[in-house]
């Protein structure tokens, strides 16, 4: 196993303070302590070459888990091994084998061109000149950033910066990559470019990747397995197909009609219809086994001009589970 966690727990201690000067004075003598369990007895096994999506709402514990797996913070309890190392020991051999990319945090030096940062990283990771040139050439071509390597980082667009951040974290060819929201804030084209790059890179090198993202398009395009964390606890760990079926094996199909149709017909009633545009569009929840037959009936009997099944069922599953965790 590349990553192995058992009962991993992280607790943070904070203190409550009443507002205002009196509150400050009071907290000087008596402070109410709050114990926040950010990650709670988390188990995780990742095989070599896996690309797993770690999902959860804000504050669920995803980043805390990433921080523990990379050795940035020390767990309160539990056991964990990454590539056979205990991350919190922060051995140099371990650090040479991992990479962490944070969409919200820069590791490139802001005031110098990316190439200068890369040269510094070459020294940090002791990469031979030949290998370094080869990797810079390969990655910059793949990410289409050859023209911006020598421009000050602060002058680049967010998309270009993110590509260069990715490049910086891959120069030492890590065996495990932790990607914490790598597409956050990017436009649709830039998101797609990053996703495409990651997919090709991972397929070619079989690098183990643990990815967190709030964009389900990232997860659907890249991950075959999903781990869901809610309130610090693992609530789901299985294939993306099973994840999309958590709420039942049903398809959400939208039909658009030429004109408004009769909304009182019996055909709609058992499929939880959601009507829009004065009866000119309806979304139905149809059991998988009835999809063909019911769609054919509707297409034959009504003036259908367009119909489609939902594009990303996992997005609906995610939003439903975040608001109703008891469904799991």
């Amino acid at each position: 196993m590349v990553i192995e966690c058992h009962g991993l727990t992280k607790e943070f201690r904070t203190y409550k303070k009443q507002p205002g000067f009196l509150g400050t004075l009071k907290s000087f003598f008596v402070r109410e302590q709050i114990l926040n369990r950010a990650v709670d007895h988390f188990d995780l096994l990742l095989e070599p070459g896996a690309l797993v999506g770690l999902l959860g709402p804000n504050g669920a514990g995803k980043t805390t888990l990433m921080k523990m797996l990379t050795g940035i913070i020390v767990p309160s309890s539990g056991k964990m091994k990454v590539l056979g190392f205990t991350p919190s020991e922060r051995k140099l051999q371990f650090r040479r084998k991992i990479a962490l990319v944070m969409g919200q945090k820069n590791q490139l030096w802001w005031d110098i061109p990316a190439m200068d940062s890369f040269l510094l990283l070459q020294k940090y990771y002791e990469i031979a000149d030949g290998d370094f040139k080869k990797r810079v050439g390969f990655l910059s071509e793949m990410l289409d950033v050859e023209k911006v390597l020598h421009i000050h980082v602060r002058k680049l667009s967010l998309g270009e910066r993110m590509k260069l951040e990715l490049m910086a974290s891959l120069l030492h060819e890590p065996e495990v990559i932790f990607l914490d929201e790598p597409t956050i804030g990017l436009d649709l084209v830039a998101q797609k470019n990053i996703r495409d790059f990651l997919r090709v890179y991972q397929e070619e090198r079989q690098t183990t990747i643990l990815l967190t993202s709030h964009y389900m398009a990232d997860v659907e395009a890249l991950c075959s397995r999903i781990v869901l964390i809610l309130g610090g606890k693992k609530r789901f760990d299985d294939s993306i197909t099973k994840f999309s079926q958590i709420l039942g094996r049903e398809k959400f199909v939208t039909f658009t009609f030429e004109r408004g149709v009769d909304q009182t017909s019996e055909i709609w009633k058992s499929h939880d219809p959601k009507w829009k545009f004065e009866g000119r569009q309806v979304e139905l929840r149809i059991p998988e086994e009835r999809l063909r037959e019911l769609s054919a009936t509707i297409l034959n009997q009504y003036p259908v001009v367009d119909f489609h099944t939902e594009k990303m069922p996992i997005e609906r599953v995610m939003s439903t589970l975040i608001s109703n965790p008891h469904l799991l």
């Binding site: 921080k67 990379t70 050795g71 940035i72 922060r90 140099l92 650090r95 040479r96 991992i98 990479a99 962490l100 945090k105 590791q107 940090y124 990771y125 002791e126």
Partner: peptide
Amino acid sequence: ISSYLIYPF
């Protein structure tokens, strides 16, 4: 300091 905790030095 997080970035520096990951670099191999």
